[in-house]
Amino acid sequence: QVALSRTQVCGILREELFQGDAFHQSDTHIFIIMGASGDLAKKKIYPTIWWLFRDGLLPENTFIVGYARSRLTVADIRKQSEPFFKATPEEKLKLEDFFARNSYVAGQYDDAASYQRLNSHMNALHLGSQANRLFYLALPPTVYEAVTKNIHESCMSQIGWNRIIVEKPFGRDLQSSDRLSNHISSLFREDQIYRIDHYLGKEMVQNLMVLRFANRIFGPIWNRDNIACVILTFKEPFGTEGRGGYFDEFGIIRDVMQNHLLQMLCLVAMEKPASTNSDDVRDEKVKVLKCISEVQANNVVLGQYVGNPDGEGEATKGYLDDPTVPRGSTTATFAAVVLYVENERWDGVPFILRCGKALNERKAEVRLQFHDVAGDIFHQQCKRNELVIRVQPNEAVYTKMMTKKPGMFFNPEESELDLTYGNRYKNVKLPDAYERLILDVFCGSQMHFVRSDELREAWRIFTPLLHQIELEKPKPIPYIYGSRGPTEADELMKRVGFQYEGTYKWVNPHKL
């Protein structure tokens, strides 16, 4: 086992960053958080920038500027975001240094004079007029057009580079997404736009490419001749908990499936790229999406959770019991969808996408189930092999396979070949997804960000279904809070070829 401390991990990262040409360590950078008073800024962006600063992973002359409508001070920003920093008493001095680099400007999102004030403020910072500028839009999409237009007109660096990070949702359907994309691309070049999907920053999602293309053993079996089906799962054990009003506007397909799960599907299904260059990788992902037809209604199961009468606390409440959810809402909190990649490698292999709230566990994984062994000599005792990439929690890679049961006879039983990170790298604290992705933006690497043509294809696949749901308002199937979801989803999976045995229990190697 390799035991690495946080300091050692960050030392390795620093070495990698400083050796590259793309990370300008000594240049002045300004990180501007648009929507600095909001939840995302408070819980994710400010803490992430602090962790990067604490670990010495930001360029040395980096300033952080918050911008929002609320009249706040840096002290206010500190008060609301610091509880999420997880700072230790030993880091007190470092924390003071961090907040000394912070400033805040209040202004409207659609007022040109406010942006001119913001620009004057940035120019007044040390070497601010020639600094590289990175704008993070932690804002609702309704203000994107006004904000990007004003940034472009008043706040661009004339000497350094300018980059803009856009948070999902990128529209509600193909038409609104196209409108937003066309607007942003009329102001910024594609190499300046970073559409963030934080799932692409997760260690195991990034590991998929290495697993596939750096190991000879997987190449020959990664196709329709050997793989019976692919299941991509995202499960949350909690409901909307008072935030249903926002969720109800989008629903589970827009929230998770059309982005996170579809991105994971691309990494499983794509061909080997010409290189690890950002556009070479994204070219292959677009090719996969172009091979997927629009979702067919007979390959869809929609569910909505109801309270568990035997549960406790939140578990007793259904989705419609959330006071922020519109009365009688038919918005799905669970969806199972089957897609097919219609190309030579994957023809006929079902890709089953499942996601839901208020389920029995927290889990995100990719599961490849292989065909049955031909010419069975073990009297149907063999179960199908599976390769599982567990994204969260407890990152893991393992192969479910058959071995001989101890004893006199040739009785096979299920076991696993474990390729888990935790076994080799004991207690290594890896940077989280937002840390990686923000560092990628500083480096100018777009590999783990969504390109406009990729986004367009993703919406093309799901828009007809979303429009049909909005028009017909089908009643989702009720499922109990804390269950596996509607049984109809299991029946759909069985119908397209997935075999669920229920006889195997994964042993978490992190707890051995």
Rank of each mutant, 00 (worst) to 15 (best):
349 V>Y: 00
302 L>A: 03
281 V>E: 02
447 M>L: 15
466 L>M: 11
505 K>T: 12
491 E>G: 07
381 Q>S: 11
286 V>E: 08
411 N>H: 05
341 V>S: 00
386 E>C: 05
395 E>K: 15
344 E>P: 13
282 R>F: 01
493 M>P: 03
470 E>K: 02
430 L>W: 13
272 K>N: 10
305 Y>D: 02
338 V>D: 02
505 K>D: 14
488 E>N: 09
288 V>A: 05
448 H>C: 13
356 G>I: 01
407 G>L: 09
331 T>S: 13
457 E>A: 04
342 E>L: 07
312 E>I: 05
296 Q>H: 12
255 D>A: 15
467 H>T: 11
260 H>C: 15
269 A>W: 02
321 D>E: 10
380 Q>Y: 14
282 R>G: 03
417 L>S: 13
304 Q>F: 01
458 A>N: 14
281 V>W: 14
329 S>W: 00
444 G>R: 06
330 T>H: 10
425 Y>P: 14
340 Y>L: 04
422 G>N: 07
506 W>E: 14
474 P>I: 14
296 Q>D: 09
439 L>C: 06
321 D>P: 01
480 I>Y: 13
374 A>T: 12
433 A>S: 13
268 V>L: 08
435 E>P: 14
345 R>F: 07
471 L>F: 10
440 D>C: 04
421 Y>M: 15
259 N>C: 11
349 V>L: 00
412 P>R: 06
501 E>C: 05
448 H>W: 13
378 F>L: 09
443 C>K: 02
422 G>Q: 05
432 D>L: 11
301 V>C: 08
347 D>I: 05
300 V>M: 07
380 Q>K: 12
312 E>F: 10
458 A>P: 02
426 K>V: 13
441 V>N: 00
454 E>I: 03
485 G>D: 00
459 W>D: 14
306 V>D: 09
301 V>I: 09
428 V>H: 10
390 R>H: 14
297 A>M: 10
472 E>Y: 10
295 V>D: 01
267 L>T: 13
332 A>W: 01
508 N>H: 14
267 L>N: 13
296 Q>T: 08
501 E>A: 05
367 R>T: 03
327 R>F: 13
502 G>M: 11
415 S>R: 14
280 D>E: 03
409 F>M: 15
270 M>Q: 04
389 I>L: 14
324 T>R: 13
504 Y>N: 14
351 F>S: 00
457 E>Q: 09
483 S>V: 04
295 V>R: 03
271 E>M: 03
451 R>A: 06
431 P>N: 14
495 R>M: 11
496 V>I: 11
337 V>A: 12
267 L>Y: 14
390 R>T: 15
424 R>D: 06
492 L>Q: 07
423 N>Q: 08
321 D>A: 09
273 P>I: 00
349 V>F: 01
277 N>D: 13
449 F>K: 01
257 M>L: 08
498 F>Q: 15
511 K>W: 11
264 M>Q: 07
442 F>M: 13
339 L>M: 13
478 P>D: 08
353 L>W: 01
322 D>W: 05
364 A>S: 14
277 N>Y: 07
282 R>H: 11
457 E>C: 04
318 G>V: 00
261 L>N: 02
399 T>Y: 08
407 G>Q: 04
394 N>W: 14
490 D>Y: 09
301 V>N: 02
394 N>M: 09
263 Q>E: 05
467 H>D: 13
300 V>W: 13
347 D>N: 14
500 Y>E: 10
458 A>T: 15
437 L>W: 07
486 P>V: 10
370 F>D: 00
477 I>Y: 09
376 D>R: 09
375 G>A: 13
385 N>Q: 10
482 G>S: 09
507 V>D: 12
485 G>S: 03
341 V>T: 02
257 M>A: 11
340 Y>E: 06
408 M>R: 06
405 K>W: 07
495 R>H: 09
323 P>L: 12
393 P>M: 01
271 E>T: 03
408 M>T: 14
494 K>F: 12
417 L>Y: 14
331 T>K: 10
306 V>F: 08
294 E>R: 06
451 R>K: 03
433 A>Y: 13
476 P>W: 01
350 P>I: 02
398 Y>M: 15
341 V>N: 00
412 P>V: 10
292 I>H: 01
399 T>W: 14
320 L>K: 09
310 D>N: 13
439 L>M: 06
404 K>T: 15
367 R>E: 05
371 H>R: 11
295 V>I: 09
372 D>A: 03
381 Q>M: 13
443 C>M: 06
336 A>T: 10
395 E>A: 07
259 N>H: 15
356 G>P: 00
460 R>G: 04
443 C>I: 08
489 A>V: 14
260 H>M: 15
346 W>I: 02
436 R>W: 11
290 K>Y: 03
389 I>F: 14
432 D>E: 12
306 V>C: 12
407 G>Y: 06
496 V>S: 06
415 S>D: 02
354 R>E: 13
483 S>H: 05
406 P>K: 09
392 Q>Y: 11
403 T>E: 07
303 G>E: 01
370 F>V: 02
335 A>C: 06
395 E>P: 13
313 G>K: 10
329 S>R: 04
427 N>W: 13
318 G>I: 01
338 V>E: 10
315 A>S: 10
323 P>A: 12
294 E>N: 08
273 P>E: 00
428 V>N: 11
403 T>I: 11
472 E>Q: 12
434 Y>W: 12
463 T>Q: 14
346 W>V: 02
439 L>F: 05
351 F>E: 02
410 F>Q: 04
265 L>Y: 00
